[in-house]
Design a protein around this nucleic acid. Structure first.
Lengths: 191, 191
DNA sequence: TCTTGTTGCGGAATGCCATTCCGTCATCAT
DNA sequence: ATGATGACGGAATGGCATTCCGCAACAAGA
């Protein structure tokens, strides 16, 4: 009875917000996920079983999507990185475009606001391969045009970081934006 | 003697190109790096010690850069993703721009060819945080303008894939590009 | 205030698995 | 032919992941 309720809930929402300890664990695992739980616990001030329990919870709640290896693109012969902006005619062209996710050189597909409709991150062996993918794109119905931004050098590339900047030092000459309330029913929010 | 030579060499170049088995291992580890070596070996047709040995070599040669956890952006309260194109005046403005890599919301920094100079991938809590980062960008000397592409939906996002598309089905009406030789000294290339 | 249930943690024990060792086989150069 | 080199698999062992259990802190309710 009770168990089922928990299971259902845990499939959607992380049962509880992550606290500072969880963020520290995520930060440590982000840098190196091969550490032992004893070492991990030592880094954040927790015993091995406690660290294990929290990480297990983070995996269950899908805060940790997966554990993966980060591959050197050059080692797998994919030195060419490009961001491709795609203009499509009309809306709802996404299902057709999703077909190109079958190509392993496509790493990201987003729909964006701005003068482009879709944005792809593509990593390929050479310009021929990029051309081949672009040809595939133009084969897709609804694709009007593409603009490719070929990366010359990559200075930073890292996965999602658990931390957030607390305060953004704003220039004082800027006007203060209006603070919107999160919900009209909230009288006094803790945050 | 011998050992030193090996060490020096292994710091730069992967001592040997990766074969099909290495790529299968990378593919499996990319999907899930938590599997045991026995299970990993089973997936690719190798014993546990053999799989372990090869993975160890892949780590040493830096073909595997690191092992990391992939974090759900929403779980860490970063639902806003944007790609920011930055126009700079003149060249060599990269060192100044690198300062913003201190902010954990900046995930990628590339220099690109095209009408933009630099390209950032930014993941933030809300539009206020993005605005704060843009303010920081404009504070940087040499930054002329920025164009932000705010992501509405993400349809695909995955790390570097070890596989490559072998043949790109080109439309027959396209002209055949000239095949450039890799090096004039190569008489008969194996590939 | 006392009780009761819940939750998170740490110590200890256990069993699995990473890691090493070693023998075998294939390949290659001499 | 033969020695060297490298890759692999079986077996053994030590470490660590995982579980179990007791304790303490905290919240809800009488």
């Amino acid at each position: 009875m009770r168990q089922e309720t928990d299971d259902v809930r845990r499939n959607n929402v992380p049962e509880r917000d992550l606290d500072e300890m969880d963020r520290k664990l995520l930060g440590a695992l982000c840098e190196d996920a091969t550490v032992s739980y004893a070492e991990l616990g030592g880094k954040v001030g927790l015993s091995a079983p406690a660290a294990h329990e929290r990480v297990k919870r983070l995996r269950r709640s899908q805060a940790i999507r997966s554990t993966s290896v980060l591959i050197d693109p050059v080692a797998v012969n994919k030195p060419l990185l490009a961001f491709v902006h795609v203009d499509t005619r009309g809306w709802g062209k996404t299902p057709e475009l999703m077909a190109i996710s079958a190509y392993p050189e496509v790493e990201e597909i987003h729909s964006v606001a701005g003068d482009a409709c879709m944005l792809l991150k593509v990593r390929a062996k050479d310009t021929r391969a990029l051309e081949g993918l672009l040809a595939k794109l133009y084969d897709t119905p609804g694709v009007m045009a593409t603009r490719s931004y070929v990366v010359l050098s990559t200075y930073l590339e890292r996965p999602v970081q658990p931390g957030s900047t607390k305060v953004w030092p704003m220039p004082s000459h800027m006007a203060q934006p209006i603070e919107h309330r999160r919900s009209v029913n909230v009288i006094a929010s803790g945050e």
